[in-house]
Amino acid sequence: MKVELKTVDDIIISRSAIKDMAKEIGFGIVDQTKIATAVSELARNIVIYAGSGILNVSAVMKNDRKGIEIICEDHGPGIEDIGLAFKDGYSTSKGMGMGLPGARRLMDELDLKSEKGKGTTVMIRKWL
């Protein structure tokens, strides 16, 4: 599933769609909520900092374990200091500054690639 992010309203649409998909994969209500909230944090980062981007959502499998994977991609300004971006409470805009560290706590895996001036890709995964 592919979701385009252009406006703040797309954040709500994308996280509901992903919550439904997580449910279909077999995640319980708590995990569905955690996944959707992590997506909300990352999608908001994209809309605020990059203006637009794409979420690529897929069901994945590793050693018989099902999971969900979301790849969030933008061509925004990139992250200057990745270490700082993972610090709790650090924010360069409105929000609580817990987008990245929060998403990492809510998911099982988070992988970030960012190049200044080119964009940012964040991959998150959660296993059943």
């Binding site: 209500i29 708590v30 569905q32 909520t33 955690k34 909230t37 944090e41 709790d88 609580m96 817990m98 560290p101 929060g102 706590r105 809510l106």
Partner: peptide, 11 residues
């Protein structure tokens, strides 16, 4: 589920 997520998120 929302309360658990908020705590996990650090809110």
């Amino acid at each position: 589920a929302v309360a658990i997520t908020m705590v996990e998120l650090g809110m």
